[in-house]
Simulated scan of single mutants.
Amino acid sequence: MAAIASLQAIHLKSGRRGSIRCGIAEPSGEPAPVGQKTRYNDGLAERVFMGLFARKMDKFGGSKKKNEIKEKGLWDYDYESFVEVSKRVMQGRNRSQQQEVVREVLLSMLPPGAPEQFRKLFPPTKWAAEFNAALTVPFFHWLVGPSQVIEVEVNGVKQRSGVRIKKCRYLESSGCVGMCVNMCKIPTQDFFTNEFGLPLTMNPNFDDMSCEMIYGQVPPSFEDDPATKQPCLADICSIANPSSPICPKLQA
């Protein structure tokens, strides 16, 4: 998912400017407290972007309404549609297959040669990590909600290449640990680290639904990652298995 910000970064370096933002409809202007769902006001640009993603993913989702989907404009989709497509993609696939679908979708949305261009523009340096962290805040807003750049330590060096997502919209809307890990965290880490050559580690907090992204930090293996050992969020996940110590979608 997060590689879309990289596409925007490439466009910025080419002289094209713009941003993709959505507004929180809560009176406080902040995400709703844990246990309550945050309300958003999505504009036309955000709806188009959600629709673009949903249509790309839907060919993997086993939908029986292909003709109906083709007739809909990109602006006819909303965030819930995007999440529902993600859920359909999960069905009948193991974790590796789910992650591969996201990788294919991300590659299909980038122009030819984009990974190579990204590697040239953003070699794995402190500057590149901090620059991508700064880009994440405006360009990820539609996908994960509000976030802010924070200082982190990477290989003993303090740098502002961290991003704290206050309350992840994707996790909040799906309520699924497996979707968070298999459809966002792991494929995004892998895409940045292996396709773009810029290491990225994402640390979701399933208690308050926040998430920390650390550019420049090599992610742990699947087996050593605490996020892969999480139980279902039984109170909010419609497909949860409360009796399982680990979310079934995280198991092979």
Score class of each variant (00 low, 15 high):
residue 121 L to D: 04
residue 107 L to F: 06
residue 119 R to N: 03
residue 137 V to H: 14
residue 106 L to V: 14
residue 134 A to E: 15
residue 120 K to E: 10
residue 135 L to M: 14
residue 107 L to S: 09
residue 118 F to M: 10
residue 112 P to S: 10
residue 108 S to K: 06
residue 129 A to C: 13
residue 109 M to G: 08
residue 126 K to A: 07
residue 112 P to W: 04
residue 122 F to R: 02
residue 138 P to A: 14
residue 130 E to L: 01
residue 104 E to Q: 15
residue 137 V to T: 15
residue 121 L to K: 02
residue 116 E to Y: 01
residue 128 A to D: 05
residue 104 E to H: 13
residue 117 Q to M: 11
residue 130 E to G: 00
residue 118 F to Y: 13
residue 122 F to S: 05
residue 104 E to G: 03
residue 109 M to E: 09
residue 121 L to A: 07
residue 127 W to M: 00
residue 135 L to V: 06
residue 114 A to C: 02
residue 121 L to P: 04
residue 113 G to R: 11
residue 118 F to P: 07
residue 106 L to Q: 15
residue 122 F to G: 07
residue 133 A to N: 10
residue 137 V to Y: 12
residue 129 A to V: 11
residue 137 V to D: 12
residue 123 P to I: 12
residue 126 K to I: 12
residue 113 G to D: 03
residue 132 N to D: 04
residue 111 P to N: 02
residue 131 F to R: 14
residue 113 G to C: 09
residue 106 L to N: 15
residue 116 E to M: 09
residue 123 P to R: 13
residue 105 V to D: 04
residue 124 P to Q: 10
residue 123 P to G: 10
residue 126 K to P: 01
residue 123 P to F: 13
residue 136 T to V: 00
residue 137 V to F: 12
residue 128 A to S: 15
residue 127 W to F: 04
residue 132 N to A: 01
residue 111 P to L: 06
residue 127 W to I: 00
residue 137 V to W: 11
residue 106 L to S: 15
residue 120 K to L: 10
residue 128 A to I: 09
residue 133 A to C: 12
residue 132 N to Q: 14
residue 109 M to Q: 12
residue 115 P to K: 08
residue 134 A to N: 14
residue 130 E to V: 00
residue 112 P to T: 11
residue 131 F to D: 13
residue 106 L to W: 09
residue 121 L to H: 07
residue 135 L to Q: 10
residue 109 M to P: 02
residue 119 R to D: 03
residue 111 P to A: 06
residue 124 P to D: 08
residue 111 P to Q: 08
residue 120 K to Q: 12
residue 126 K to F: 01
residue 131 F to G: 04
residue 111 P to F: 09
residue 104 E to S: 11
residue 113 G to W: 03
residue 133 A to F: 02
